[in-house]
């Protein structure tokens, strides 16, 4: 035990020499002190972005959200029912506002564009009169009809100058087409123009439009023969069909398709 104490005392005698002690002291006092900037906390808000790979993760997430949203919007615009995807527009005009509808049922035409009146002659086959929603349920869409033509092309394609004088309105239509007219249950009248593979309808409302007309559907406008037409597109089994709306003096006309009608000739009496 005594040896242990002696050993510890011996250890305690280990010291610097006076020269070493003086030298170290002088070195310390003569060392230029470099002002070190305070160490930034690794957990501060900015440090998280500047020091860690979290910034990359965050940027990746933001890019994912951005491109995910862009893809969703793009394919929503381009897709068909049940998530099928098809490139529909090929060099034609398209309605930039129609993609705002979140699904195809919303994109479809309002129900009151359907034939609600009684037919008098040349009745249209039932499946073509049940409206856009029913037409969309078809499993195939033919490619040729998916290509749209501009209203001006349609106008030049129509040579007929036969004037139909309906109740409250008149228009020119293709001479090869058959015409059917009737009255709407909610008031007003309608005309259906059909040929072998084409179909148009014109609904005339002398008063206020029914409430279930969605204004956003007719968000875009087209100027035809000095008349401003509101229009919107809807996908059907025959491709995209454009519907127009024209107002004059509190009276409104809704035209489904314009393949057989000269829009520029439409007049509200």
């Amino acid at each position: 035990m005594e040896n242990e104490k002696i050993g510890i005392e011996n250890l305690k005698k280990i010291t610097m020499t006076p020269e070493e002690k003086s030298q170290v002291f002088q070195n310390i006092l003569n060392t230029p002190l470099i002002a070190k900037p305070p160490i930034k906390s690794p957990y501060s808000f900015i440090s998280v972005f500047t020091r860690h790979n979290l910034s990359y993760s965050l940027a990746f997430c933001l890019l994912l959200i951005f491109f995910g949203g862009a893809s969703y919007t793009y394919f929503q615009k381009q897709s068909l029912e049940n998530g099928r995807v098809a490139m529909i527009n090929k060099g034609g005009i398209s309605d930039n506002n129609s993609f705002r509808a979140s699904n195809f049922n919303q994109k479809a035409l309002p129900n009151n564009l359907n034939n609600t009146g009684s037919t008098t002659e040349n009745s249209i086959p039932t499946d073509t009169k049940t409206g856009a929603n029913a037409k969309m349920s078809a499993s195939t869409i033919s490619a040729p009809s998916a290509t749209m033509m501009s209203p001006n092309d349609l106008k030049s394609a129509r040579a007929s100058q036969i004037i139909y004088q309906g109740t409250g309105f008149s228009f020119n239509y293709d001479s090869s087409a058959k015409i059917t007219s009737g009255t709407l249950s909610g008031g007003g009248s309608y005309v259906e123009i059909s040929s072998t593979d084409k179909y148009n309808s014109i609904h005339f409302y002398p008063g206020t439009l029914p409430n279930n007309f969605r204004p956003e559907f007719f968000a875009s406008t087209t100027l035809i023969n000095g008349k401003t037409f509101y229009h919107g597109d809807v996908q059907t089994e025959n491709g995209i069909q454009r519907s127009y709306m024209y107002k004059k003096g509190g009276k409104t006309i809704v035209i489904q398709n314009d393949t057989l009608i000269d829009l520029g000739s439409i007049e509200i009496n």
């Binding site: 002696i6 011996n10 005698k13």
Partner: peptide, 12 residues
């Protein structure tokens, strides 16, 4: 300067 004995080395 300082003596460092055998005991010290042993304990160390």
């Amino acid at each position: 300067n300082v003596e460092f004995g055998a005991e010290g080395r042993f304990v160390l």
